[in-house]
Design a protein around this nucleic acid. Sequence first.
DNA 1: GAAGGGAATGATAATCATTATCGTTATCAT
DNA 2: ATGATAACGATAATGATTATCATTCCCTTC
Lengths: 128, 128
Amino acid sequence: MVKLTQQRQSILDLINASNRHWDADEVARALSDAGQAVGIATVYRGLAALEAAGLLDSIQLADKKRYERADKAHHDHMICTECGLIEEFTRETIEVLQLAAAKERGFELSGHQLTMFGRCKKCSLEKV
Amino acid sequence: MVKLTQQRQSILDLINASNRHWDADEVARALSDAGQAVGIATVYRGLAALEAAGLLDSIQLADKKRYERADKAHHDHMICTECGLIEEFTRETIEVLQLAAAKERGFELSGHQLTMFGRCKKCSLEKV
DNA sequence: GAAGGGAATGATAATCATTATCGTTATCAT
DNA sequence: ATGATAACGATAATGATTATCATTCCCTTC
């Protein structure tokens, strides 16, 4: 049985108190700064356990994985390749079409990730 | 100016002659087996250059990047978490909705990746 | 047809996120 | 108290990718 230890509670509280997308290192650093230092290996294990328990969501980026609160409606991401901004968006219809495509192929869907890349509004305006 | 060297041509030919999704290591190994060994660093650089030139497409998986031919219609991927099978599918409507969502936020889209995870038909049937 | 410059190559070291290892510690039921 | 089980934390290991750097290739120009 998975345990919600003190360390995991700290990780969860930290992420739940924000709207950011955290990577393991940022979590470790933030907890350390808050005087609740948690070993980096424990952070990795904690994040994975919390995600498996449905208490956190994650997106896999090219270089690393980032975690966010799970208590929000499902959404996908739009990432600015210029400034790193991560915006969220939802399109119910896309979800429906995905399910249909999966069913069509006899695929038993367990998850998906839709990520769009480009330049956010701000960056598009700033640099020609 | 980017050059289409002998090595890059070999990489391109190899991938174009298949429908697979190759990672750098597989490419290096295959070329080596074919008697056209290419340094692993060169393979990485070649793949990146060919993709930048629009001659190859790629999908970023959790652990590594995989390359495929670019001379096919745009499509997304469905990956079996059991056997690793990568199936392709297309849903024109999804593309349209993505563009709409981007425009709505002033996002200047440069690319996207939609990947679905689950168990393929075969694996769903085999193991309960 | 030699000389010089830009790009690519290849061997290898370095980087960086993540996972494995392992002895120690906390927690909970008997 | 006694185990049993899960987690912790420090650190080593892994694995994909990138950086370094001396060498080589390919043009273009003289």
